[in-house]
């Protein structure tokens, strides 16, 4: 009897543990994801890694948000940035801000370097969980595929 009860309790515990873990997918490492995305994206010009503090000021990030970002020299509108925010709500707020910023850049480049406007119009600005992606490139299809594969989209 005792052995039977013990076996039943252990099985129930195992089932409960499995059920709790099944709903959460493992989050990626920010830097690893960012470098993979950069390697999988076709850029027209060499991009340079930004100092995180500079990127934080550039994108207006709060202290809880981590970032890995690359940009060009000013000769191009291309850039790549991956953000890990403190919460999903912060991620949604950042997403909206990046979309507004992208609209402003379309206006700026329209009168400065019109050839860059199509890249901006096709920018990838995506959010999954606490992670946000900003990618303006010559061909961002590789970045989209990797992002989807990472987050099961």
């Amino acid at each position: 009897m005792k052995k039977t009860l013990t076996f039943i309790l252990a099985a129930a515990l195992a089932v409960l543990l499995l059920a709790a873990c099944g709903g959460q997918a493992a989050e990626p490492d920010l830097d690893e994801l960012a470098f993979k995305l950069k390697d999988s994206t076709a850029f027209g010009e060499e991009l340079y890694l930004l100092d995180e503090g500079i990127a934080r000021e550039l994108y207006g990030l709060n202290e809880e948000t981590k970032c890995a970002a690359w940009a060009g020299t000013g000769a191009t509108a291309e850039e790549l940035a991956v953000f890990e925010t403190g919460s999903e709500e912060d991620a949604r707020t950042l997403l909206e801000r990046l979309q507004e910023r992208n609209s402003a850049r379309i206006a700026d480049y329209g009168s400065y370097l019109p050839d860059e406007v199509p890249k901006l119009e096709n920018s990838l600005i995506l959010a999954e969980g606490r992670f946000v992606l900003l990618c303006t490139a010559q061909d961002s299809s590789g970045a989209r595929q990797l992002w989807n594969a990472t987050f099961g989209g």
Partner: peptide, 23 residues
């Protein structure tokens, strides 16, 4: 202009005010 944008991104200088845009 855009050159100052580059200075902003790559000079390493933080905690200042940048009034610049590409055009």
């Amino acid at each position: 202009d855009s050159r100052t944008q580059g200075l902003r991104l790559y000079s390493g200088l933080k905690d200042t005010t940048w009034l610049c845009s590409v055009g």
